[in-house]
Amino acid sequence: MNPISFVTQMIRIAIPYLFAASGGVVAERAGIVSLTLEGFMLSGAFAAVLGTNYSGSPWVGVLSGVLGGLIFALIHAVATIRYRADQVVVGVAINLLAIGVTRFFLKLFFASSSNSPRVAGFGGNINMAGFDNPLLWLGIIVAPVMAFVIYKTPFGLRVRAVGEHPDAAESVGVSVKRVRYAAVALSGMLAALGGVYLALDQHQFTDQMTAGRGFIAISAVIFGRWDPIRAALACLLFAAAETLQIQLQGSHAIPSQFIEMIPYALVIIALAGVVGRAIPPAALGRVED
């Protein structure tokens, strides 16, 4: 096995996870459950293909993809923050809605129930192995940037405050709702970028193309104990397992289904406290009046 090709492939696989997990960390640190990452990614992927298809420019695709994720994030935010609906229920519904909306508009715009036509993308130089894609570099720096935002900026302080002690934050004049709106919106845009990367990398949208990646990302958030850097390392770990599976294909050493299970099994182990207790933000999922 060639170590360089292993690492480059691992990074390419990790990019969607890195974007989505960063989004998940921000929303959950603000106290909003992030079961929605899958839906944000899927809507981002579809909107990116739509934008790229009609403009011919992948940059327009990036913008429309981010907008697509933002729209779903705002639906989630209004339902859970303004109307205090249950975050788990709405989260599940957002994912179903994203599947439905992308399917419906796939039919409406491209008259297909499975995939869009081929669209433009970034890079494509065979010798660069995908590293001539600006989104890939953005994905590599997104975790450190989010770590800076969460730990070193006033916004990050407020996010952490409303996720741990919303009453205390409110009493010193922080608008809990406004900070949560901002955090969910940011999480929608970041997760959408993961979907955008996926769609532009494959040059098309296919039905349910995120295929559970949003759930792997949320696993990484929990496994990384709600810290951007540790979550990013978890993403890399999961991507490494997947790369191993791809590179071992044909050898049949381990059935691929068992490699697929690794991230999910690790999260259950983490939650069971075997590798140190996973303690979520204190106000995560709470509905306060």
Partner: peptide, 11 residues
């Protein structure tokens, strides 16, 4: 398209 119902379920 029947996909309309997928949307309505979420709604």
């Amino acid at each position: 398209p029947k996909q309309m119902m997928d949307v309505l379920q979420g709604v």
